[in-house]
Computed example of a mutant assay.
Amino acid sequence: MRALRLTAWGEAPAPAEAERPVPHGTEVLVRVEAAGLCRSDLHVIDAPPGALPYRLPFTLGHEVAGWVTALGPDAAGVAVGDRVVVYGPWGCGSCARCAAGSDNYCDRRDTLAWHGAGLGRDGGMAEYLLVPSARPLVPIGDLPADQAAPLSDAGLTSYHAVSGLRPALGEGTTAVVIGVGGLGHLAVQILRATTESRVLAVDVREDALALADRSGADFATLMRPDTARALRARSGGVGADAVLDFVGTAQTLELAISVLRPGGELAVVGSGGGSLTVSKPGVLPAGFRLSLPFWGTRHELAGVVTLARSGALRVETERFPLSAAPEAIDRLRRGAARGRTVLVPD
């Protein structure tokens, strides 16, 4: 089968011929219909030797949707022909967090040689994906695969971040989304579907503001010197009850703090290299709470799929054949991708 394999750190992944897996024991073989591409893949590709515990080579791709095509003799919980999305973070499977469906916060994460499909284990940028059991599989019914695949990271991470803020987002509140890309545009929709908050959006690109509008934002603006003032005005002058920063640079964190009201919530999702200095007294809003959400739980993925199947959540995608993965990676690296990039087998 064809697969996009990472064979050397810091070098572009290469299309290669790989042996089609055969499921044993509890394993499940999924025929891939679509695999998402995101900046986390770039972080893996660009990682220097020794920065990650993964052993080369392996197939990339941690956002995967497809249909079950073969089962190991001990597999249970799915049937051949089921259409599924694959829960991406794979933990140890035996700690308390994993037992509760929170592999994203596995207690043994730092000891593992992998973090999931396409993250040290062979992933879904291939014709087939071998899954260790039915445990990471969530049914999608008739949801199109190019919509389902990005839900397993872009949708799930956004949903998990919003879930942590939801108690603060009742009627009359304001939420600000900084960065309206592959994750941010889904966060806008999830906020609209699951909270009563007004949703304000910020980006540096005009086309991202148009995407925010299509996603249901009440107001969208470019990042300028007066952006904090404009956002505060839209919040009724008191500031935002919650800010979700999907960029995480020094500039976006500064904006987040400047618009957050006392007692507000800040969720930093992006890994842009920015930092906050915590001091008391200091410049941080009094009583503010900080979270660093990472991915999400298996149960939350089922909730994301339910939202998508209801029509409340739609992923803006760019589709590429698997053979055009180098072009898709280049577009993502240049910041030219619109929404979420999805690779489909040729």
Rank of each mutant, 00 (worst) to 15 (best):
R2G: 06
T7H: 11
R20D: 14
R20V: 09
T26Y: 09
T26D: 15
L29D: 03
I45N: 08
A47D: 08
L60R: 07
H62W: 09
V78M: 07
V86K: 01
C95N: 13
C98L: 13
N104V: 05
D107K: 13
D107S: 15
H115C: 06
R121T: 04
P132L: 13
S133A: 14
R135T: 12
P139A: 12
G141N: 11
A145Q: 04
A149S: 13
P150R: 00
S152M: 04
H160T: 11
G170V: 04
T173L: 02
T174W: 02
G184M: 01
H185S: 06
L186Q: 04
A187P: 03
L191I: 01
E196Y: 12
R205D: 10
L211I: 01
D213A: 11
G216K: 00
M223H: 11
A240D: 02
D241C: 04
L244Y: 03
V247M: 05
Q251L: 13
I257K: 09
I257F: 03
V268C: 02
G272Q: 06
G274S: 05
L276V: 13
T297N: 07
H299L: 14
R319K: 14
A328L: 05
I329E: 13
A336C: 10
R338N: 12
T341M: 11
D346W: 06
